[in-house]
């Protein structure tokens, strides 16, 4: 009972801070936080297929790019309003995930990772070739959000925040419902799951479609937010790797792990990027190497001691207790 009220207090505090933040800090920081939220959504979405279901979707950015290009094309060529294009982006990502999933989800481990990467690079080439529609390698401009820059910053901040909250709430349901149990059964032992009567092919496709849905929607917001996209940024392997690092740092298959990981990695990465421009990638590489070596199970599963240990145990690890038990 006491723990529950404490959790509620922390949640309320977090809500107050995140909601009041754009009115307190400068536009630069609002954009930084929007970016962190974006990475957190992408990492959480990847967590559904990679963390819960155990399929290393190394080409998951394919849906991000598809979502972004859907918005860009529909808004410029067909004059659709953003809201409609946004919904279409989610739909197209799901359709793509179902089709690609039927083909690729029969692969396992590294083969699946490479297959999805190959699919992503193939889609990127199609985008580059089909320049009448997509602008090719030149990229494509998206109409800007009307209004002042101040309004735009706040708009995208809250949009990303809302999407993040929806994603995290959805993922947290996976700890309790049948769908989540099916995913985790596939991760634990796919053949056994099959024998137990779980239609593994169906659930794997559902898992990837859900992951694709949130990734595609994020891509859609990204396109409208940046108002310019090009194929080499929206289909970038480096982004996927970053997301994997965020999940690894935070904790694979936990609800808040990807969010914590996104926050940590993005903050550290920004810090070094602004200070040591030429060394940025090298430092990021070093961080990746040591994150994987030192905390392969995630920061949420490290046994913390002292006051930080108390905070982690009390607030963050509460929801992850289930995942921790099962991973042993």
């Amino acid at each position: 009972m006491k723990r529950k009220s404490l959790t509620l207090c922390v949640l309320a505090l977090l809500a107050v801070i995140t909601i009041s933040l754009p009115f307190l800090v400068s536009g630069f920081w609002v954009r930084q936080f929007t970016e962190i939220f974006m990475y957190a959504i992408l990492a959480s979405a990847l967590n559904i297929i990679a963390g819960y279901t155990g399929y290393t979707a190394f080409g998951n950015m394919v849906f991000f790019g598809m979502g972004a290009y859907t918005v860009a094309i529909l808004m410029t060529k067909a004059n659709f309003p953003f809201a409609v294009a946004f919904v279409c982006a989610g739909g197209i990502s799901v359709i793509a995930a179902v089709l690609l999933g039927m083909l690729l989800l029969r692969l396992k481990g590294q083969y699946f990772a490479l297959g999805t990467t190959g699919a992503m690079l193939a889609v990127r080439q199609i985008v580059d070739i089909w320049s009448d529609l997509t602008g090719g390698t030149q990229g494509i401009s998206v109409p800007r959000l009307p209004g002042t820059p101040y309004f735009a910053n706040a708009f995208f901040y809250f949009f990303m925040l809302a999407l993040l909250v929806v994603t995290v709430l959805f993922v947290s349901r996976l700890h309790k419902n049948r769908l989540g149990y099916a995913f985790k059964a596939i991760r634990a032992n796919e053949e056994a799951a099959n024998v137990m009567g779980i239609n593994t092919t169906k659930y794997k496709i559902i898992a990837w479609s859900l992951s694709a849905f949130f990734t595609g929607l994020t891509g859609a917001v990204y396109a409208y937010w940046f108002s310019y996209i090009e194929s080499k940024t929206v289909f970038d392997v480096l982004w996927v790797t970053n997301m994997f690092v965020m999940i690894i740092v935070g904790g694979m298959g936990t609800v808040l792990g990807p969010v914590v990981g996104a926050f940590l990695l993005q903050t550290v990465s920004r810090y070094f990027w602004s200070r040591y421009m030429t060394l940025h990638l090298g430092i990021l590489g070093t961080i990746i190497i040591f994150a994987v070596l030192c905390i392969p199970n995630g920061i949420l599963r490290v046994r913390w001691k002292g006051i930080t240990g108390f905070l982690f145990e009390k607030f963050l690890a509460v929801k992850n207790a289930g995942a921790e038990k099962e991973n042993r």
């Binding site: 290393t56 190394f58 481990g109 990772a113 790797t241 690092v245 690894i248 990746i288 994987v292």
Partner: peptide, 8 residues
């Protein structure tokens, strides 16, 4: 698992 070595 595969994602660890890929990321590494």
């Amino acid at each position: 698992p595969s994602f660890i070595t890929l990321t590494f």
